[in-house]
């Protein structure tokens, strides 16, 4: 991770975005120019703003990684936890304060490797939270090691001859575990990204949104797609919508990323179920 240099130009962030940030000497932020994390962060802020979620009720939790640095900049309650453990910690928050709007962000390594077990079980229990997995296909923070989503034959510092592991599909994993809402998009498609975050925030239970995002500095460089523009274009070229995918065969889909909503169902989320249990137990006495 290379720190972003303070721009000499006067930045013209919208005042709306500013009002959600902790605007002190924390800036400049840690992310590289051209990184996809800012796009996701921006979309999240837009979604929260448009849904008028009060800051006082908002909790943003994360694990460790480039993506997981997001909470430090948000002007709300924020919880920068341990590598992989954000979902477990957020489970504690949500059950203690069911009225809070809990959002958890993390990289593919954080959520699907070290945090994979928590990912499965938080989805299974349908703890009420929006989980955004930012999939940049590598461990960016630590310098580009292979992650559980690194595609076959692509390079990472710990896969110098190309990855031979098959990657995991976060959306399939969450669907199988029982998540109420499961969707995928990319940073290329900002409009869909914002819309899906809004949908996720409006649902109950565990909602997973996987966002394929560019890490030009490391993943792009290691795979000879080093500019943000080329990497975003590469992501776009590998993306197909769920509708289009239905008409394609397995061979055609082999190196494709399917975007869209995979699961959207009504569930009684865990804290509601728990409240019902408490009522039942107390009435019995």
């Amino acid at each position: 991770m290379t720190p972003a240099k303070a721009s000499s130009r006067k930045t013209s962030f919208s005042p709306m975005i500013h009002s959600y940030l902790r605007m002190d000497e924390r800036f400049p932020h840690v992310w590289c120019p051209g990184c996809g994390i800012g796009i996701v962060f921006g979309a999240l802020i837009h979604a929260v703003h448009e849904l008028k979620i009060p800051k006082k009720k908002l909790l943003l939790a994360s694990g460790i990684g480039c993506t997981s640095r997001m909470p430090g900049y948000l002007d709300a309650d924020t919880f920068h936890v341990l590598h992989g453990r954000a979902l477990a910690a957020a489970t504690g928050v949500k059950l203690a304060r069911p009225d809070m709007e809990v959002v958890v962000v993390g990289g593919d390594g954080d959520m699907l490797a070290i945090g994979g077990n928590h990912f499965i079980h938080t989805a299974r229990r349908n703890i009420g939270m929006t989980c955004i997995v930012l999939n940049n296909y590598n461990y960016a923070m630590t310098g580009g090691q292979q992650s559980p989503t690194t595609p076959r034959d692509m390079f990472a510092t710990t896969a110098p001859y190309g990855a031979i592991d098959d990657p995991v599909d976060a959306c399939l994993l969450a669907s199988g575990a029982g998540a109420a809402f499961v969707a995928r998009t990319t940073t290329y498609n900002f409009v869909q990204l914002k819309r899906l975050i809004k949908t996720a925030l409006s649902r109950k239970g565990f909602r997973l949104l996987e966002v394929v995002a560019q890490c030009p500095t490391i993943f792009g460089r290691l795979n000879r797609i080093p500019t943000p523009k080329d990497l975003v274009t590469w992501i776009k070229a590998h993306t197909v919508t769920l509708e289009a995918a239905k008409k394609m065969d397995a061979k055609e889909l082999e190196d494709k990323v399917v975007t869209g909503v995979f699961v959207d169902r009504e569930v009684e989320e865990y804290s509601e179920r728990y409240a019902r249990l408490v009522k039942k137990v107390r009435n019995a006495h």
Binding site: A89, T91, G92, V93, L95
Partner: peptide, 12 residues
């Protein structure tokens, strides 16, 4: 997960 969940609940 247990230790993290109790930390989350206590922080809340």
């Amino acid at each position: 997960a247990s230790i993290m969940a109790i930390i989350g609940a206590s922080a809340a």
